[in-house]
Design a protein around this nucleic acid. Structure first.
Length: 441
RNA sequence: GGAGCGGUGGCCGAGUGGUUGAAGGCAUCAGACUUGAAAUCUGACGUACGGGCAACCGUAUCGAGGGUUCGAAUCCCUCCCGCUCCGCCA
């Protein structure tokens, strides 16, 4: 959620900053509601104060005095209730609007309407020059019996896959390798719940606006569902970021750095027809995620560190990639600055997203009520809590890493070379070959 | 699925209609004492909103919402969450 106080104090500046992403529809109405709310609260508190004062004398008042005060008190009580209802209404209207307003981009974020406005920051590793024509990961995977998409369609429909034999083991190896990489750098690992409440998804910004991208899960048969549904997480950013929801952390603890492995589930109703071949876009995929809790002052540095970490992972896997700074039009709803890491895919002759690292500033923290208490100078007067900054980044999308590894390390004979660093996770094998003797169709 | 119990401040835990934002304890912070530390003593110590330059003042807040009442942490209703036992189960 945007900073409503800042909005109220300087609507013009706020609108200018937000207009860069082209969405300022509700700002005027929000300002109006903020002022209406103050007015209601002012009236309400005056009445409550009067009521409290009258009440103070009631206990020791004589029956006659009590009787005399009663009418006035009744009237006050009714007025208070009416104003309380009004306050709730105004706040509900305010929240309904505010929860749909996206985050404000940082000044250094380039302006643009779509991915063409993104700015390449650097490239790492040269793509190999193949002396044969590159196969894509589906052809490679099918030939090596690493993946079975047709049978997955039979079981679950489109956008699902079985990994098989060495293919399944490769995914497990990649996830383990990534997690160990993060642990070696000092991150704390969390294994999160995969089903979360609507409130949790509101905290990170997926709800209320993007419900169509999520899978809903009911208790028991749909027609009997009594309890509120849960949602399959689209990324472990959701449960991890909400880990500290409604809490106040001491500044000394920050920054906090977590990593997590999880399945992710995305309905992505709007993506029909895009990336229909292969494993690039699935309803279910694995991802290792990095999440940071930091002071607003630390956020920028933490973002750069996450990008570097993701890049180092790709380098360790010998995968050519580039870092891209997203423009205003290509950023996610909650982000105020995002870098994508794009890995080289020989079959497409282009770079494809494999990691996205964002700072949301205090946007999610305000929604999820995550605050920290600044150190302060005077030990007698503790500082007031303020929202902290949350960051998240893929480190990495395991499925897409699987794809990139096959395509980049394919060899003339159809086998796939395993990079040195990954071999310990695959029992020491140096390549995936057709005659591995694992499984048959 | 059946039966029962419970949700109070960072934590534990009193409190069943009227100065209770809430006893007491723990934790934390500051000061005193001490060569230092421990122990001890004194004091401070929730959050949000409104007003104010500030000191500060006011209002709300005892899981959430609604109701009864002049007045609710305390009474009533609904919902949410947690725990225990039985059943089922990876």
């Amino acid at each position: 959620m945007i900073d409503l106080k800042a909005l109220e104090q300087d609507p013009t500046a706020f609108a200018a900053a937000l207009r860069r992403r082209g969405d300022i529809a509700n700002l005027d109405e929000l300002v109006r509601l903020a002022r209406a709310r103050k007015e209601v609260i002012g009236k309400l508190q005056a009445l409550q104060e009067e009521r409290n004062k009258l009440n103070e004398g009631m206990k020791k008042a004589t029956p006659a005095e009590r009787e005399a005060a009663r009418d006035r008190m009744r009237g006050l009580g009714d007025d208070v209730k009416a104003l309380e209802a009004e306050q709730r209404t105004v706040e509900a209207q305010r929240d309904a609007l505010a929860l749909h307003v996206p985050n404000v981009p940082l000044p250094e974020v380039p302006e643009g309407t779509d991915e063409h406005g993104n700015v390449e920051v650097r490239r790492v590793l040269e793509p190999r020059k193949l002396e044969f024509s590159a196969k894509d990961h589906v052809d490679l995977g099918v030939a090596l019996e690493l993946v079975d998409i047709e049978r997955a369609a039979k079981i679950s429909g489109a956008r699902f896959a079985f990994l098989k034999g060495q293919g399944a083991r490769l995914e497990r190896a990649l996830a383990s390798f990534m997690l160990d990489f993060h642990l070696a750098a000092g991150d704390v690992e969390l294994a999160p719940p995969l089903l979360v409440t609507a409130a949790t998804l509101t905290g990170t910004g997926q709800l209320p606006k993007f419900a169509e991208d999520l899978f809903t899960v009911n208790f028991g048969p749909p027609q009997e569902a009594g309890a509120a549904p849960l949602y399959l997480i689209p990324t472990s950013e959701v449960p991890i970021t909400n880990y500290y929801a409604d809490e106040i952390l001491d500044e000394e603890r920050l920054p906090l750095r977590f990593c997590a492995f999880s399945q992710c589930f995305r309905a992505e109703a709007g993506s029909a027809g895009r990336d229909t071949r292969g494993l690039i876009r699935q309803h279910q995929f694995e991802k290792v995620e990095m999440v940071r809790f930091a002071t607003p002052e630390q956020a920028s540095d933490e973002l750069e560190r996450m990008v570097q970490r993701a890049s180092d992972l790709l380098t360790a896997l010998e995968l050519p990639h580039r870092v891209v700074l997203l423009c205003t039009g290509d950023m996610g709803f909650a982000a105020e600055k995002t870098y994508d890491l794009e890995v080289w895919l020989p079959s497409q002759g282009s770079y494809r997203e494999i990691s996205s690292c964002s700072t949301t500033g205090s946007f999610q923290a305000r929604r999820a009520q995550i605050r920290y208490r600044p150190k302060g100078n005077d030990p007698k007067k503790p500082e007031k809590p303020r929202p902290l900054a949350t960051l998240n980044g893929s480190g990495l999308a395991v499925g897409r890493t699987w794809v990139a590894l096959l395509e980049n390390h394919q060899q003339a004979d159809g086998s796939v070379r395993i990079p040195e660093r990954l071999r310990p996770y695959l029992g020491g094998v140096d390549a995936l070959r057709k005659d591995a003797g694992l499984g048959s169709s």
